[in-house]
Protein backbone atom coordinates (compact mmCIF):
# COMPACT_ATOMS: atom_id res chain seq x y z
CA UNK A 1 0.00 0.00 0.00
CA UNK A 2 2.80 2.42 0.79
CA UNK A 3 4.43 1.86 -2.59
CA UNK A 4 1.08 2.47 -4.26
CA UNK A 5 0.82 5.80 -2.43
CA UNK A 6 4.30 6.75 -3.55
CA UNK A 7 3.48 5.86 -7.15
CA UNK A 8 0.32 7.93 -6.93
CA UNK A 9 2.39 10.85 -5.69
CA UNK A 10 4.83 10.58 -8.58
CA UNK A 11 1.92 10.43 -11.02
CA UNK A 12 0.29 13.49 -9.43
CA UNK A 13 3.52 15.50 -9.59
CA UNK A 14 4.16 14.44 -13.17
CA UNK A 15 0.65 15.56 -14.20
CA UNK A 16 1.17 18.90 -12.48
CA UNK A 17 4.59 19.29 -14.12
CA UNK A 18 3.12 18.72 -17.58
CA UNK A 19 0.29 21.11 -16.82
CA UNK A 20 2.51 23.94 -15.61
CA UNK A 21 5.59 23.42 -17.79
CA UNK A 22 4.27 22.87 -21.32
CA UNK A 23 7.70 22.59 -22.97
CA UNK A 24 8.64 19.23 -21.53
CA UNK A 25 12.00 17.58 -21.84
CA UNK A 26 10.49 15.10 -24.30
CA UNK A 27 9.37 17.96 -26.57
CA UNK A 28 12.62 19.88 -26.16
CA UNK A 29 14.76 16.86 -27.02
CA UNK A 30 12.58 16.17 -30.08
CA UNK A 31 13.20 19.72 -31.27
CA UNK A 32 16.92 19.55 -30.52
CA UNK A 33 17.31 16.28 -32.40
CA UNK A 34 15.34 17.51 -35.41
CA UNK A 35 12.48 15.07 -34.95
CA UNK A 36 9.74 17.65 -35.27
CA UNK A 37 9.36 17.59 -39.03
CA UNK A 38 9.77 20.91 -40.77
CA UNK A 39 9.40 23.14 -37.72
CA UNK A 40 13.04 23.58 -36.82
CA UNK A 41 13.93 26.47 -34.50
CA UNK A 42 15.26 29.79 -35.70
CA UNK A 43 18.96 29.93 -34.91
CA UNK A 44 20.42 33.00 -33.25
CA UNK A 45 24.17 32.98 -33.57
CA UNK A 46 25.12 36.65 -33.92
CA UNK A 47 23.73 40.16 -33.46
CA UNK A 48 22.17 40.16 -36.91
CA UNK A 49 20.26 36.95 -36.34
CA UNK A 50 19.29 38.27 -32.89
CA UNK A 51 17.75 41.31 -34.61
CA UNK A 52 16.11 39.08 -37.21
CA UNK A 53 14.70 36.85 -34.48
CA UNK A 54 13.30 39.66 -32.32
CA UNK A 55 9.73 38.95 -33.35
CA UNK A 56 10.04 35.33 -32.32
CA UNK A 57 11.63 36.30 -29.03
CA UNK A 58 8.69 38.57 -28.42
CA UNK A 59 6.14 35.85 -29.07
CA UNK A 60 4.25 34.78 -25.96
CA UNK A 61 2.31 32.02 -27.58
CA UNK A 62 3.19 28.38 -27.73
CA UNK A 63 3.26 27.21 -31.33
CA UNK A 64 0.54 24.71 -32.12
CA UNK A 65 -1.40 25.37 -28.94
CA UNK A 66 -4.59 27.25 -28.31
CA UNK A 67 -4.64 30.33 -30.51
CA UNK A 68 -6.07 32.43 -27.70
CA UNK A 69 -4.36 31.35 -24.52
CA UNK A 70 -5.39 32.94 -21.25
CA UNK A 71 -2.78 35.22 -19.68
CA UNK A 72 -2.06 32.49 -17.18
CA UNK A 73 -1.22 29.91 -19.83
CA UNK A 74 2.26 30.65 -21.04
CA UNK A 75 5.16 28.43 -21.88
CA UNK A 76 7.84 27.29 -19.60
CA UNK A 77 11.42 27.74 -20.60
CA UNK A 78 13.70 29.99 -18.68
CA UNK A 79 14.55 31.80 -21.84
CA UNK A 80 13.68 34.91 -23.72
CA UNK A 81 10.04 35.62 -24.05
CA UNK A 82 9.22 39.24 -23.44
CA UNK A 83 6.46 39.90 -20.99
CA UNK A 84 4.75 43.16 -20.30
CA UNK A 85 7.03 45.26 -18.15
CA UNK A 86 5.45 45.92 -14.80
CA UNK A 87 4.96 49.48 -13.56
CA UNK A 88 8.26 50.92 -12.55
CA UNK A 89 10.12 48.36 -14.53
CA UNK A 90 9.50 49.60 -18.06
CA UNK A 91 10.99 52.67 -19.61
CA UNK A 92 14.02 50.97 -21.01
CA UNK A 93 12.12 49.38 -23.80
CA UNK A 94 10.81 45.93 -24.44
CA UNK A 95 12.00 44.06 -27.47
CA UNK A 96 9.01 45.24 -29.42
CA UNK A 97 10.35 48.77 -29.51
CA UNK A 98 13.08 47.86 -31.94
CA UNK A 99 16.50 49.36 -32.46
CA UNK A 100 15.42 52.23 -34.70
CA UNK A 101 17.32 55.49 -34.40
CA UNK A 102 20.45 54.14 -32.76
CA UNK A 103 23.97 54.07 -34.18
CA UNK A 104 25.31 50.66 -35.13
CA UNK A 105 27.11 50.33 -31.81
CA UNK A 106 24.08 51.65 -29.99
CA UNK A 107 21.95 49.19 -31.86
CA UNK A 108 23.88 46.18 -30.72
CA UNK A 109 24.32 47.45 -27.17
CA UNK A 110 20.64 48.34 -26.99
CA UNK A 111 19.83 44.92 -28.30
CA UNK A 112 21.94 43.28 -25.62
CA UNK A 113 20.16 45.21 -22.91
CA UNK A 114 16.72 44.49 -24.34
CA UNK A 115 17.65 40.84 -24.57
CA UNK A 116 18.50 40.92 -20.87
CA UNK A 117 15.17 42.55 -20.03
CA UNK A 118 13.37 39.89 -22.03
CA UNK A 119 15.19 37.24 -20.02
CA UNK A 120 14.03 38.92 -16.82
CA UNK A 121 10.43 39.12 -17.96
CA UNK A 122 10.47 35.50 -18.94
CA UNK A 123 12.09 34.54 -15.64
CA UNK A 124 9.35 36.36 -13.74
CA UNK A 125 6.74 34.44 -15.69
CA UNK A 126 8.64 31.23 -15.00
CA UNK A 127 8.57 32.03 -11.26
CA UNK A 128 4.79 32.12 -11.50
CA UNK A 129 4.79 28.69 -13.17
CA UNK A 130 7.07 27.25 -10.51
CA UNK A 131 4.80 28.73 -7.82
CA UNK A 132 1.80 26.96 -9.32
CA UNK A 133 3.77 23.71 -9.47
CA UNK A 134 4.83 24.13 -5.82
CA UNK A 135 1.23 24.69 -4.76
CA UNK A 136 0.30 21.38 -6.34
CA UNK A 137 2.71 19.44 -4.11
CA UNK A 138 0.47 17.71 -1.55
CA UNK A 139 0.77 19.51 1.77
CA UNK A 140 2.63 22.55 0.44
CA UNK A 141 -0.26 25.00 0.77
CA UNK A 142 -0.88 23.80 4.33
CA UNK A 143 2.57 24.99 5.40
CA UNK A 144 2.94 28.33 7.18
CA UNK A 145 2.51 30.97 4.46
CA UNK A 146 5.77 32.66 5.43
CA UNK A 147 7.55 29.34 5.01
CA UNK A 148 5.97 28.87 1.58
CA UNK A 149 7.41 32.25 0.62
CA UNK A 150 10.83 31.29 1.98
CA UNK A 151 10.85 27.96 0.14
CA UNK A 152 10.03 29.73 -3.11
CA UNK A 153 12.44 32.57 -2.55
CA UNK A 154 15.37 30.19 -2.03
CA UNK A 155 14.28 27.39 -4.31
CA UNK A 156 12.95 29.06 -7.40
CA UNK A 157 16.24 29.93 -9.12
CA UNK A 158 17.46 26.38 -8.47
CA UNK A 159 14.29 25.07 -10.09
CA UNK A 160 14.66 27.45 -13.04
CA UNK A 161 18.23 26.29 -13.51
CA UNK A 162 17.03 22.68 -13.54
CA UNK A 163 14.28 23.62 -15.97
CA UNK A 164 16.92 24.94 -18.37
CA UNK A 165 18.88 21.70 -18.55
CA UNK A 166 16.48 19.86 -20.89
CA UNK A 167 16.58 22.83 -23.25
CA UNK A 168 20.35 22.83 -23.50
CA UNK A 169 23.01 20.84 -25.25
CA UNK A 170 26.71 21.55 -25.49
CA UNK A 171 26.16 23.91 -28.44
CA UNK A 172 23.30 26.10 -27.28
CA UNK A 173 19.88 26.40 -25.78
CA UNK A 174 16.27 26.48 -26.86
CA UNK A 175 14.25 29.56 -26.01
CA UNK A 176 10.80 30.98 -26.70
CA UNK A 177 8.88 27.72 -26.41
CA UNK A 178 11.44 25.99 -28.59
CA UNK A 179 11.05 28.42 -31.46
CA UNK A 180 14.60 29.70 -31.07
CA UNK A 181 17.94 28.01 -30.64
CA UNK A 182 20.59 30.39 -29.33
CA UNK A 183 24.16 29.25 -29.67
CA UNK A 184 26.47 29.00 -26.70
CA UNK A 185 29.20 30.77 -28.67
CA UNK A 186 26.95 33.76 -29.29
CA UNK A 187 26.05 33.98 -25.60
CA UNK A 188 29.75 33.82 -24.76
CA UNK A 189 30.42 36.68 -27.18
CA UNK A 190 28.17 39.12 -25.31
CA UNK A 191 29.89 41.78 -23.25
CA UNK A 192 30.73 41.14 -19.61
CA UNK A 193 29.04 40.24 -17.34
CA UNK A 194 26.22 39.10 -19.66
CA UNK A 195 28.53 36.54 -21.27
CA UNK A 196 29.13 34.99 -17.84
CA UNK A 197 25.51 34.40 -16.98
CA UNK A 198 24.63 31.30 -18.95
CA UNK A 199 28.00 29.57 -19.28
CA UNK A 200 27.85 27.96 -15.79
CA UNK A 201 24.33 26.73 -16.63
CA UNK A 202 25.66 25.08 -19.79
CA UNK A 203 28.42 23.39 -17.83
CA UNK A 204 25.93 22.14 -15.26
CA UNK A 205 23.33 21.10 -17.82
CA UNK A 206 25.68 19.09 -20.03
CA UNK A 207 26.73 17.04 -16.98
CA UNK A 208 23.21 16.85 -15.58
CA UNK A 209 21.83 15.62 -18.91
CA UNK A 210 24.14 12.60 -18.81
CA UNK A 211 21.88 11.26 -16.02
CA UNK A 212 19.21 10.91 -18.74
CA UNK A 213 16.29 11.77 -16.50
CA UNK A 214 12.87 12.01 -18.07
CA UNK A 215 10.05 14.39 -17.25
CA UNK A 216 8.55 12.09 -14.62
CA UNK A 217 11.89 11.93 -12.77
CA UNK A 218 12.35 15.68 -13.05
CA UNK A 219 8.91 16.40 -11.62
CA UNK A 220 9.80 14.58 -8.42
CA UNK A 221 13.26 16.10 -8.23
CA UNK A 222 11.89 19.64 -8.58
CA UNK A 223 9.53 18.96 -5.68
CA UNK A 224 12.44 17.67 -3.57
CA UNK A 225 14.42 20.85 -4.30
CA UNK A 226 11.48 23.08 -3.40
CA UNK A 227 10.92 21.23 -0.11
CA UNK A 228 14.37 21.92 1.32
CA UNK A 229 14.10 22.24 5.07
CA UNK A 230 17.41 24.04 5.50
CA UNK A 231 16.49 27.34 3.85
CA UNK A 232 17.36 30.34 6.01
CA UNK A 233 14.56 31.81 8.09
CA UNK A 234 12.11 28.91 8.02
CA UNK A 235 9.74 29.02 10.98
CA UNK A 236 8.53 25.45 11.10
CA UNK A 237 11.03 23.04 9.59
CA UNK A 238 9.60 19.69 10.67
CA UNK A 239 6.49 19.57 8.40
CA UNK A 240 8.65 20.60 5.44
CA UNK A 241 11.11 17.81 6.18
CA UNK A 242 8.25 15.32 6.48
CA UNK A 243 6.89 16.34 3.09
CA UNK A 244 10.33 16.15 1.52
CA UNK A 245 10.93 12.69 3.00
CA UNK A 246 7.77 11.40 1.34
CA UNK A 247 8.75 12.87 -2.04
CA UNK A 248 12.26 11.51 -1.63
CA UNK A 249 10.88 8.02 -1.06
CA UNK A 250 8.71 8.39 -4.10
CA UNK A 251 11.70 9.57 -6.16
CA UNK A 252 13.89 6.71 -4.99
CA UNK A 253 11.24 4.14 -5.85
CA UNK A 254 10.47 5.80 -9.16
CA UNK A 255 14.13 5.87 -10.25
CA UNK A 256 14.53 2.17 -9.41
CA UNK A 257 11.58 1.30 -11.62
CA UNK A 258 12.25 3.84 -14.36
CA UNK A 259 16.05 3.36 -14.53
CA UNK A 260 16.69 -0.19 -13.33
CA UNK A 261 20.17 -0.29 -14.87
CA UNK A 262 21.38 3.08 -13.68
CA UNK A 263 23.46 2.43 -10.60
CA UNK A 264 23.29 4.91 -7.74
CA UNK A 265 21.16 7.32 -9.78
CA UNK A 266 19.28 8.48 -6.69
CA UNK A 267 22.52 9.33 -4.88
CA UNK A 268 23.99 11.01 -7.96
CA UNK A 269 20.90 13.13 -8.31
CA UNK A 270 20.94 14.25 -4.70
CA UNK A 271 24.56 15.33 -5.12
CA UNK A 272 23.44 17.73 -7.84
CA UNK A 273 21.68 19.79 -5.20
CA UNK A 274 25.06 21.00 -3.95
CA UNK A 275 26.10 22.09 -7.46
CA UNK A 276 22.78 23.87 -7.87
CA UNK A 277 23.27 25.95 -4.76
CA UNK A 278 26.67 27.13 -5.96
CA UNK A 279 25.29 28.02 -9.37
CA UNK A 280 22.51 30.06 -7.81
CA UNK A 281 24.89 31.81 -5.41
CA UNK A 282 27.14 32.81 -8.34
CA UNK A 283 24.11 33.87 -10.39
CA UNK A 284 22.81 36.08 -7.61
CA UNK A 285 26.23 37.71 -7.22
CA UNK A 286 26.33 38.42 -10.97
CA UNK A 287 22.92 40.09 -10.84
CA UNK A 288 24.00 42.11 -7.82
CA UNK A 289 27.11 43.16 -9.76
CA UNK A 290 24.96 44.18 -12.71
CA UNK A 291 22.74 46.17 -10.38
CA UNK A 292 25.75 48.11 -9.12
CA UNK A 293 27.65 48.61 -12.38
CA UNK A 294 25.06 49.05 -15.11
CA UNK A 295 23.79 52.62 -15.29
CA UNK A 296 20.47 51.66 -16.86
CA UNK A 297 19.99 48.54 -14.79
CA UNK A 298 16.43 47.94 -13.70
CA UNK A 299 15.42 44.71 -12.04
CA UNK A 300 11.97 43.23 -12.42
CA UNK A 301 10.02 43.79 -9.16
CA UNK A 302 9.38 40.10 -8.62
CA UNK A 303 13.03 39.26 -9.16
CA UNK A 304 13.97 42.13 -6.84
CA UNK A 305 11.85 40.53 -4.13
CA UNK A 306 13.50 37.18 -4.62
CA UNK A 307 17.04 38.48 -4.85
CA UNK A 308 16.86 40.91 -1.94
CA UNK A 309 18.83 39.52 1.01
CA UNK A 310 19.29 36.22 -0.82
CA UNK A 311 22.84 35.00 -0.16
Amino acid sequence: PEAADLRALSRLLYDSYVKHFPLTKAKARAILSGKTGDSSPFIIHDMKSLMDGEQLINCKQIPGRDQHPSPAVLADNYGVVAGHPAPGYGGLGGLSQGPIGLSHQGRTEGLELRFFYSCQSRSAEAVREVTEFAKSIPGFVDLDLNDQVTLLKYGVIEVLTLRMAPLMNKDGTLMSYGQIFMTREFLKSLRKPFCQMLEPKFEFSVKFNTLELDDSDLALFLAVVILSGDRPGLLNVRPIERLQETVLHSLELHLKVNHPDSMQLFAKLLQKMTDLRQIVTDHVHLIQLLDKTEVDMCLHPLLQEILKDLY
Partner: peptide, 20 residues
Protein backbone atom coordinates in the same frame (compact mmCIF):
# COMPACT_ATOMS: atom_id res chain seq x y z
CA UNK B 1 4.94 40.31 4.21
CA UNK B 2 5.53 43.66 2.45
CA UNK B 3 9.01 42.54 1.46
CA UNK B 4 7.56 39.65 -0.53
CA UNK B 5 4.30 41.12 -1.67
CA UNK B 6 4.25 39.60 -5.16
CA UNK B 7 5.28 36.15 -3.91
CA UNK B 8 2.46 36.29 -1.37
CA UNK B 9 0.06 37.26 -4.15
CA UNK B 10 1.28 34.43 -6.35
CA UNK B 11 0.82 31.96 -3.53
CA UNK B 12 -2.63 33.14 -2.56
CA UNK B 13 -4.24 33.80 -5.94
CA UNK B 14 -4.45 30.66 -7.95
CA UNK B 15 -5.86 32.11 -11.13
CA UNK B 16 -5.66 35.88 -11.11
CA UNK B 17 -2.86 37.03 -13.38
CA UNK B 18 -0.53 38.86 -11.05
CA UNK B 19 0.93 41.90 -12.73
CA UNK B 20 4.20 40.50 -13.96
Amino acid sequence: KEKHKILHQLLQNSTSPVDL
